[in-house]
Design a binder for these strands. Sequence first.
DNA 1: CTATGGCACGGATT
DNA 2: AATCCGTGCCATAG
Length: 467
Amino acid sequence: MLHHLPLQTIKPLTTAHLAQTMSLLSLTAAELQEQIEAELASNPALEMLDELRCPVCHRKLPRQGICPVCSQPVLSQGEEAVVFVSTREVYTGFGEPQDDEDREDNGALEEESLAVHVFRQIAPDIPSEDRKIAAFLLTHLNEDGLLTISLQEIASYHHIPVERVRNIQRVIQRADPVGVGSVDPKEALLAQLSLLEETQPVPALTRKMIEEGLDLLSRHQFHELARMMKVSVGEIQRIASFISKNLNPYPGRSSWGESKGGRIANQQVFYKPDILITLSTNGDQEVLVVEILFPLWGTLRVNPLYRKAIQEVDEELKEDMRQDLERASLFVKCLQQRNHTMQRLMQRIVAWQKDFILKGDKFLKPLTRAQIAKELGVHESTVSRAVANKAVQLPSGKIIPLADFFDRSLSARIVLKELIMHETKPLSDAELVKLMAQRGYEVARRTVAKYRAMEGILPANLRRACY
DNA sequence: CTATGGCACGGATT
DNA sequence: AATCCGTGCCATAG
């Protein structure tokens, strides 16, 4: 499963080797890039070759993606996950590679960051010739995450058919603040609904109600609606509450900026993924493909000329050069080790959490770092470091911290949320404990209260009956 | 009296 | 060794 990896050079485990590998492990893709560039600049024995060869067949690799020859046999083995290091570009902004390193450019940047956030998610999924259109579209969002110009305008501006713009928009709508890039609240709601339908049951008629009676709905004219849809008022209210709980007509608002009352503040937004998980259909098999993003393109190696030159140099210089060489080869080894470890780590994680990745939060299986460490035969702290401060992009386009795979209570919280969402009368914490227990979640009353707080759900006595 | 939130403790995790 | 998380106890609000 891992035979296509550069494994040859993993044996001399000196302490220096170990220490440096450790520190490299904990770096994010962006930090790694800095580190490599610094090393490259300071050590003349290192060189970066402007080409990439497959470690197995030594064919030249295309600028993006993996070896088309060697990836084949791996994909066809029916593995749960294929993991490899990819040099795929990490998208940092629109068009030109601009320095967005600067700190808060206040308002302007704040507004733009929603667009950047979305762009990063979708960029890998759309052909490069469409990216500038996507970028254009994203620059015309208002603070609600809705489009300020029509699709026709975009199409005629770029001289392309409207249908093509619409396809790009569809991709965008499925990205993180779901529904972003819609022309109006109605379209945003429908986009969210479509995505929701893929993972969970949705009340019948919800779609019809949004499509046909949105203006009535927003004015709470339930009786009018009931007559129009030919169902009871109670049914209408049920759907209405479902909509207000699960959907958001202004995608830009909820997840962005404003922190809702009682929300835990650690909901950090990650912009740049370090790892990419995509779903690839290989024949009839669905395979998860994991890419460990590697920030630089090319082959890092010890400069062979430098190695030669050392022979023909005075004694005093020789010692210095020897050290440079030593450092260089150590660095390369550490880098290989880091990649190797990351690959094995992700392989295990993805295999274990496959359902979570494909079907959503509810299917997160409990997992501890210690467990993975044992399976991998590495120290726990190694896993800890590797997992900390990194972000993963899921096939859905969502970017989450890698540590989320180890969240012990996420699935319990989701169950709790559903329980409350479907309740017919406000349930007290104690009652919720019982219901949770029936579903196999044994938690204390006090804990239910905490989960509620985390999800920003009001206590029962303040909760409005849900229908 | 009941339902919740605060504080702090202990065991697990990192 | 430091931190996180679930929990129990107790005060407080309704």
